[in-house]
Amino acid sequence: MQRKLWMVLALLLLVPGLMLFTSCAQQSAVDQDTTQKTTPPADTGSTTGSDDLQADAAKRAAEQAMNQFINEHIYFDFDSAALSAMAQATLKNKAAWLNANPGVMVTIEGHCDERGTNEYNLALGERRAMSAQAYLVDLGISASRLSTISYGEERPLDNRSTEEAWAKNRRGQFKLK
């Protein structure tokens, strides 16, 4: 039992690494198998334990994972649609969750801060959403599950005109369809 737990933990650590280094085509199959076995939240129906507590915990964990998927945004530099190392790490987590939840369809929203002008920001927002989409596709997520939309500077999370607010508003946001 102890040994099995270690294996599970090892796999959990391995999965993101695998996604980083192997090619996409083979990748998706491998990822899906491993994550379904190793991530309890994705897999409430086939958990080994049968008591309510364990099921509840699994459900809570699944909810938590989903909330994290929805609430964790990726952030961009001013007038840039390039993915930072941090944005890439966040997208890897999102890919893992998407692999664990194969039925889910997602809309990626691209947003900008208020400093540029509306029209160009609509275009920039779309490029941000598209770079996130392309990255997830590279990680093996089917493009058919991912749509994009740009809101430009029209839907800020923080209405203030400060560096901090601008940084918060230059984001990619993920919505379940």
Binding site: E119, L122, A123, E126, T148, S150
Partner: peptide
């Protein structure tokens, strides 16, 4: 209405 996929702007 002009509703192509993606942006329809400016």
């Amino acid at each position: 209405e002009i509703g192509n996929k993606g942006l329809n702007i400016t």
